[in-house]
Design a protein around this nucleic acid. Structure first.
Lengths: 114, 114
DNA sequence: ATCTTTTATCGTAAAAATACGATTAATGTC
DNA sequence: GACATTAATCGTATTTTTACGATAAAAGAT
């Protein structure tokens, strides 16, 4: 894109979009599911489950860490990841308030939809 | 990406990721908000509110239509868009079940997090 | 000390997303 | 019919994302 216009939007809109972007790839959804299911996951276990190269998985993990959704700690040669529930809840309520707000507003007007 | 591996994931994961991608840009969040607030919107009204060129807004509108989140109808020279609540609700419950499932699983195991 | 295992990072290639101006198409206005 | 308005589409440039192999770094095993 010639220029990045993203910063010209409202903070709440940017935040929700960033939240969404964090889980906008099936690999990252799958990673979150895998970690949540076992409460925590060794990196290698995740790599085994996904149809992607190790370096690619590492890349996706990094993005989830950057988004704050997961956190990792080193354990010997291995790397252990777990969900950051505080941020995860923030995500969940962010989506919820978006969906609910939209819905409420629409219900208060007579739906003369196109 | 050298190859597209997205189709190798589970259907539910792809679906959630696609949902997320649809609202992963602040422009599209802003568009949805604008339409929901007024129940329906002329394309030109949306263009006025956003810091983007008309053609770019049209592009974002098209993506939202493709995702099923909104639908448009032509009214003379103008174009009217409204939320497709059926799909919108599907989105909302998709996110909810993802967040809730993850949370429940985690609570059932002792959180010996990293 | 050497070799293996594990994971992060680097470099890079290919693809997708974002953004715009110009053009087109279709209707409305004079 | 000529001109204006509105919005979609086309072509294109730039940026970002996705993906991989190769390499590096750090700990474990022999």
């Amino acid at each position: 894109m010639a220029q990045n216009k993203k910063e010209e939007f409202k903070k709440t809109e940017i935040e929700l979009a960033d939240f969404a972007k964090a889980i906008s790839h099936p690999a990252r959804v799958a990673i979150l599911k895998a970690i949540a299911a076992k409460d925590m996951c060794i990196c290698g276990e995740i790599v085994e489950v996904l149809p992607l190269a190790q370096s690619t998985v590492s890349q996706h993990l990094k993005e989830l860490v950057n988004a704050g959704l997961i956190q990792g700690s080193i354990d010997g040669t291995k790397s252990c990841y777990c969900i950051n529930w505080k941020i995860f809840d923030k995500f969940a309520s962010g989506f919820n308030s978006f969906f609910n707000k939209a819905k409420t507003k629409a219900e208060n007007s007579k739906a003369k939809c196109c």
